[in-house]
Amino acid sequence: MNKNIKRVCFLLILTALTSHLHAQETFVNDISYPYLEKLIATAKKNYPEVKMKQSQVNAAKTTYNQTKFAWLDGFTASYIYSPQSSINISQPTIFKGYQLAIGLNIGQLLKNPGATSVAKENYKIAEYEQSQYMLSLEAQVKRFYFAYLGAQADLRLRSNAVIDAEGAVKQLKYAFQKGETTFQIYNSQLNSLYNQNSFKVQAELAAFTAKTNLEELLGTKLEDIK
Score class of each variant (00 low, 15 high):
Q184I: 15
I185G: 04
I185M: 11
Y186P: 06
Y186G: 06
Y186S: 06
Y186H: 10
Y186R: 13
N187A: 11
S188V: 05
Q189W: 07
L190F: 02
L190R: 06
L190W: 02
N191H: 08
S192N: 15
Y194N: 15
Y194K: 15
Y194G: 15
N195H: 14
N195S: 15
N195E: 15
Q196W: 08
Q196I: 05
N197Y: 06
N197K: 13
N197H: 07
N197S: 09
S198H: 13
F199P: 00
F199A: 13
F199W: 07
F199K: 13
K200Q: 10
K200V: 02
V201C: 03
V201I: 13
V201G: 03
Q202P: 05
Q202L: 11
Q202N: 13
A203F: 03
E204N: 09
E204Q: 13
L205K: 09
L205W: 06
L205N: 10
A206K: 09
A206P: 01
A206H: 04
A207M: 10
A207S: 10
F208L: 13
T209G: 05
T209H: 07
T209M: 09
T209N: 14
T209Q: 14
A210S: 09
A210T: 01
K211Q: 08
K211F: 01
K211D: 01
N213Q: 15
N213L: 10
L214R: 01
L214W: 01
L214C: 03
L214I: 05
E215A: 04
E215V: 04
E215Q: 12
E215D: 05
E216H: 12
E216L: 10
E216W: 07
E216D: 11
L217H: 01
L217V: 02
L217E: 00
L218E: 00
L218V: 03
L218S: 01
